[in-house]
Design a protein around this nucleic acid. Structure first.
Lengths: 215, 215
DNA sequence: GGGGTATATGAACGGTCATTTACCGTACGA
DNA sequence: TCGTACGGTAAATGACCGTTCATATACCCC
């Protein structure tokens, strides 16, 4: 049976790994650094994970699963209008990359060191996220509220996700661009890319980016 | 004096490193792999580069310099219209990431393993490329042909470059999306993002992406 | 033909890596 | 209270890393 203390150590290892992978990348981070950040010695890691690779897998999969929970919840609460659903989805992606910068960057960059079935699991999650956005775009196009470039929901979805996915690379809380304003701009950019209704329209411009709780 | 043979070996090492860094990344590629790909043993690398880091620096800097030459040439030949200049710049970025996928990916991802002055050199080049695009956007906004989100050329420039920079991650020559069509779509997306004149307009839609020669 | 230079070899170096193993304290259930 | 499983330590393992260096070979100019 796993005691409470065990769970805490495991989570501390995952948290330390998140920060280190964010700062230096998976390959440039040693097991020693991860465990030392928790006050342990190297061997302690292997009481909780069978290998460094498995730790990465658990971490990256959790990051993707959390994002999937956020997007499906946002979509469910956004109502029936495809434009609202689209804006809500983009808002989640932007907020995730701004608020959980470390996790987002690890999820978007370090997953490529996985191999075999572990890599496939993560790729499947990434495909679902892309398809979710593409589905909303397709619905909007069929409803006549979107005018997609090349008629392709896939291209637009990919471009929007790529654009959002790199926010975590440059966004800083102490920069001159506030989270609220950055958020507003990226939603507007995404709406323009989809050929949707342009800026001053009925869709409620979010007063602030959604705060994403840990779920 | 450097003989012809020296130049060829050096270039072969750079070419082999490009492919390997593209496939596995800088850290996951050993000196042994680079040299073996050229039919050499490990030590041979140090006749041409003082270190593995320096090889990366030379390679990444060359990739950026070549892109800078392409963009400034495209801008110079695009005429005075900011919309034309903008489209020409985006076309170069798209074409570079589609045609020189290996080099583009190495340039965009592996530079972060550089440190100190070498990293600064590359960052300066990246800043120039971003500023070049932002300058054209600003000119277009002042001329009244662009309507930038948040009035910010920097935000739009960054979003466009991020979107284009990831093309090399997913684009495949043998995919269902032809280079010409992909090129067309991304220019259209970039024009929409800038709030420029929408799709059927006087600006010549490129019949094909520009072929970028080695310069 | 001989001397110097350029370039590759292959063995060695010190270091670090992920992982394994033996061992030890401690807390908890029987 | 005993024993057992858990979660930590410390040390060792073998592999691989980037880099160095003495040496060998091929080539160009005199």
């Amino acid at each position: 049976m796993t005691s409470v203390e065990t769970l805490r150590s495991r989570d501390r290892l995952l948290a330390a790994a998140t920060t280190l992978f964010y700062e230096r990348g998976f390959l440039a981070t040693s097991v020693k650094e991860i465990t030392q950040a928790c006050g342990f010695t190297q061997g302690a890691l292997y009481n909780h994970f069978p290998s460094k690779d498995e730790l990465l897998y658990v971490l990256v999969l959790d990051i993707h699963a959390e994002l999937e929970r956020h997007t499906s919840r946002a979509r469910a609460t956004a109502g029936d209008d495809p434009v609202d659903q689209y804006a809500a989805l983009v808002a989640v992606h932007v907020a995730a990359h701004a608020q959980y910068r470390e996790r987002s960057r690890v999820g978007n960059h370090e997953y490529r060191w996985l191999t075999g079935a572990r890599l496939e699991d993560v790729n499947a999650s990434r495909r679902r996220l892309r398809d979710e956005l593409a589905d909303v775009l397709t619905a909007g196009q069929e409803a006549g509220v979107f005018d997609l470039v090349g008629g392709s929901a896939a291209t637009t979805a990919r471009a929007v996700l790529d654009m959002c996915g790199l926010i975590s690379e440059w966004f800083r809380d102490d920069g001159s661009l506030t989270p609220t304003e950055m958020h507003r701009r990226y939603i507007e950019l995404a709406l323009r890319m989809a050929g949707g209704p342009s800026t001053p329209r009925t869709w409620p411009v979010l007063p602030a980016p959604p705060v994403l709780p840990k779920i």
